[in-house]
Nucleic acid binder design. Structure first.
Length: 298
DNA sequence: GGTAGACCTGGACGC
DNA sequence: GCGTCCAGGTCTACC
């Protein structure tokens, strides 16, 4: 079955895919040679499907190797639209970026959308697994989580979806710690899964909450394992750009950009993007850094 | 509100 | 091959 979804223009699937490292995390799989990716997802019916998403101007096509019910088609349409931010409008950002040489390519490259997973739960777990570890560690932890707890594609046990909150909630902390190798993050992931599975926490409601960003940030910070950096990262994924995800990479980039490589603190990073107001997170994300090239992933 | 120390893993390095 | 050191954010206890 094939679905066609339109995007707000400008749109470039390759730019979205390479907006950060998420494409390297299971159950995403990059497609060689073309602008597109594969993703394994479990639908609300429990059915596990593999989707292939390809550029089809002015949007994408979604190929699913199976017949879908109208409900399932609608669910996939909604999920892919969310994952790629198809309805996001960055015209205000582009107007501002035009006057900044370090962001002058933003509109041309259609930068602004940041690749998301199908659910905010999945993105929150992945964000927790980016903290206090090397990127290779994040890739390994997510891969282990999917391989050990994710439901498999029918007839292909090697391909698995990200586990649902309920599936993860049944795990025990020791297994997550010692076999999934999440280390001290195990209780954080388990508690999050249990809260979402029990209905105490409705993460996907965060997508549409009409509350000020600082208030939303407070709610994210109340999740164990989510600190300043993780909350700001999740806010960016939620389309809120008024906080900067300040991590060690940010210190390095900003230090070399404006401070001659000298050690700096959070205030220096924030000062560098203060003028960007509600767009500072995005300006930081797509800034054309002098040191070490851009932040995109190939 | 700010700070120090613990948490855990894997990669780099020296022997 | 083994041991040690270090990088990477967040939490908790303490001041």
């Amino acid at each position: 079955m094939n679905l066609v979804l339109e995007a707000q223009t400008p749109f470039n699937l390759r730019t979205v895919i390479h907006s950060h490292g998420w494409i390297q995390l299971a159950p995403f799989d990059n497609l060689d040679g073309v602008a597109g990716f594969q993703y394994i997802d479990q639908l609300h019916t429990g059915r596990v499907i593999e989707m292939k998403v390809l550029e089809k101007s002015p949007g994408v096509s979604v190929e699913v190797g199976a017949q879908l019910s109208p409900d399932e088609s609608e669910e996939i349409t909604d999920k892919v639209a969310w994952m790629l931010g198809l309805d996001q409008d960055f015209s205000t950002f582009y107007a501002l970026a035009q006057g900044e040489p370090k962001l002058a390519q933003a509109a041309t490259k259609a930068q602004g959308r940041i690749l998301r997973s199908a659910t905010l739960f999945e993105d929150t777990v992945k964000t927790i697994l980016t903290t206090n570890t090397a990127w290779s560690g994040t890739i390994r932890m997510v891969q282990n989580l999917v391989a050990q707890f994710g439901p498999s594609l029918p007839g292909n046990p090697g391909k698995r979806a990200f586990p649902t909150p309920a599936q993860l909630a049944e795990a025990d902390e020791e297994t997550l710690r010692n076999q999934t190798r999440l280390g001290y993050r195990s209780p954080y992931v388990l508690e999050l899964a249990q809260k979402v599975a029990s209905g105490k926490l409705d993460m996907d409601a965060f997508k549409n909450l009409e509350i000020p960003t600082p208030e939303l940030r407070k709610q994210l910070l109340s999740i164990k394992g989510v600190g300043d950096y993780a909350a700001a990262n999740l806010l960016v994924l939620l389309g809120r750009f008024d906080f900067i995800p300040v991590d060690s990479w940010a210190f390095k980039m900003v230090s070399h950009e404006w401070y001659g490589g000298e050690p700096i603190g959070r205030s220096e990073v924030e000062a560098g993007f203060e003028d960007w107001g509600d767009w500072k997170g995005l300006a930081f994300w797509f800034w054309d850094w002098s040191y070490g090239g851009d932040s995109s992933v190939d």
